[in-house]
Amino acid sequence: MRLRCRLSCAEVFEGVSQGETEAEALRNIQEAIQLCLDVRRAQGLPLTIESRQIEAPIYA
């Protein structure tokens, strides 16, 4: 049985990572985060972005 995992990290970049297993998805997102941080550092940008979670009622 194949397992598809999807991970995200909004505090660093707006993106997601996938993998056939949880371990592969984790490796993929770690690599994506590192590459994003390298680019942001080279461009003199902040390493993280502000992130907030809110709850909003849904009316049917």
Rank of each mutant, 00 (worst) to 15 (best):
S17M: 00
L37I: 06
F13Y: 10
A42G: 03
G19C: 03
T21G: 05
S17Q: 02
E11W: 00
I49T: 13
S8G: 10
G15F: 13
Q53V: 15
Q30R: 10
L45E: 05
R52T: 14
E24S: 12
T48I: 12
C36P: 03
A60Q: 11
R40V: 07
A23H: 05
A32C: 08
L35M: 13
Q18D: 13
R6Q: 13
N28S: 06
A10W: 05
Q34Y: 04
G44C: 02
S51I: 10
F13V: 09
A10S: 06
R27T: 03
R41F: 07
V12Q: 02
C9P: 12
E55V: 14
L45S: 11
I29K: 02
A25S: 02
E22I: 14
A60I: 08
A56Y: 14
L47G: 12
A25G: 01
R40P: 01
E24P: 04
S8H: 09
S8R: 08
D38C: 08
E55Q: 12
G15A: 11
R6N: 09
N28I: 03
T21N: 04
L26N: 12
R6V: 15
R52L: 14
D38Y: 01
A32L: 13
I49G: 09
F13S: 02
V12T: 08
N28Y: 05
L37M: 06
E22W: 13
Q34S: 11
L26C: 10
A23Y: 07
F13R: 01
D38L: 09
V12L: 11
R4A: 11
E24W: 12
R27A: 03
L37F: 01
E55S: 12
R2C: 03
L47R: 05
C9Y: 14
Q43E: 10
R41M: 08
R40D: 02
N28C: 04
I33P: 06
A56K: 12
A42I: 02
D38F: 00
E50T: 04
R52V: 12
G44S: 05
A10C: 00
A60C: 07
L47T: 06
R4Q: 07
N28E: 12
I58L: 15
R27C: 00
E31M: 06
I58F: 15
I33M: 01
V16C: 11
E14L: 11
L7M: 04
E11L: 01
T21P: 00
R4F: 04
L47N: 03
A10L: 03
L3D: 07
P46C: 15
E50W: 07
P57I: 06
I33R: 02
T48L: 14
P57C: 06
L35E: 15
G15E: 09
M1H: 02
C9T: 07
Q43P: 05
E14V: 12
L3S: 10
T21C: 04
G15V: 11
E14Q: 13
T48H: 14
A60M: 08
I29N: 05
I58T: 10
A32T: 07
S17T: 03
S8D: 13
A25K: 00
S8A: 08
R52Q: 14
P46N: 13
A23Q: 09
